[in-house]
Nucleic acid binder design. Structure first.
Length: 227
DNA sequence: GCCAACGTTGGC
DNA sequence: GCCAACGTTGGC
């Protein structure tokens, strides 16, 4: 990979800010994962957490496709902007929420994610991308000029991570939030794959996991007429 | 542009 | 460690 060069396009507020993908940033060390196992129930709980975590295999990532100026910078970054990058690949920087960050740290190369358009005229799923590089240090946390500069993060113990994503394809049709919501309500009432979808149960989370069942159902909608 | 929901901060 | 105040998200 060439030396990293930010393509100053960007996405959602706390969500993600995209730049050209890069390999020249040190991999994030997961040095603090070993917890002392003083209490058996804690050990079991951690095992369960890990099992649940590793069961997530698909993702939904939000970004803003319409121009909006934040601290003097346009945060627009829609799926077309990802597609336009070299190798159609960018790093999903700018995530400043711990849960969203942790989900990114769980991502594995090759996994698929929905590209979700948020805070725009028509919110919804626009396409598919895949993870091409697992979590590493988000350099923008140290950049004073960056919208998502975090003065509390120290170089010897970075707080924030990002992954690289590559455009895969547009969905055959745009799948609007309103439609997903109808299914969610329907499934909540009578059962169905979207009854617990994070998009509705964890509305403000910018990086969210989907179960295979959720992912498959949402993807199947591209072959159906809108409801 | 409004504002409900909810995550974060900081005083105590 | 509680919780009120504050800030952000994101649909509408």
């Amino acid at each position: 990979m060439p030396p990293k060069k930010r393509t100053r396009s960007k996405s959602t507020r706390h969500d993600a800010q995209l730049c050209e993908g890069s390999d020249d940033v040190a991999q994030l060390k997961t040095g603090k994962r070993n917890r002392s196992a003083a209490v058996t129930s804690d050990v079991e709980k951690n095992k369960n957490d890990d099992a649940i975590k590793s069961s997530y295999s698909h993702w939904l990532m939000k970004s803003e496709p319409e121009s909006r100026i934040e601290n003097g910078v346009d945060v627009k970054f829609g799926i077309e902007d990802l597609k336009a990058l070299p190798s159609q690949t960018g790093c999903w920087d700018g995530v400043r929420n711990y849960q969203a960050r942790n989900f990114m740290r769980d991502m594995k190369v090759g996994q698929q994610a929905f590209f979700y358009h948020s805070n725009c005229k028509e919110p919804g799923i626009a396409g598919l991308m895949k993870i091409v590089k697992e979590a590493y240090v988000d350099h923008t946390q140290f950049d004073k000029k960056d919208v998502h500069y975090d003065p509390s993060s120290k170089a010897d113990n970075p707080k924030w991570s990002m992954v690289d994503v590559q455009f895969e394809r547009m969905t055959k049709r745009f799948i609007p939030l309103t439609e997903l919501k109808k299914y969610h309500l329907q499934h909540k009432a009578k059962g169905g794959p979207l009854k617990d979808m994070a998009l509705f149960t964890r509305a403000r989370l910018s990086v969210q996991p989907l179960t295979s069942e959720e992912f498959d159902f949402v993807l199947s909608l591209e072959n159906e007429d809108p409801i």
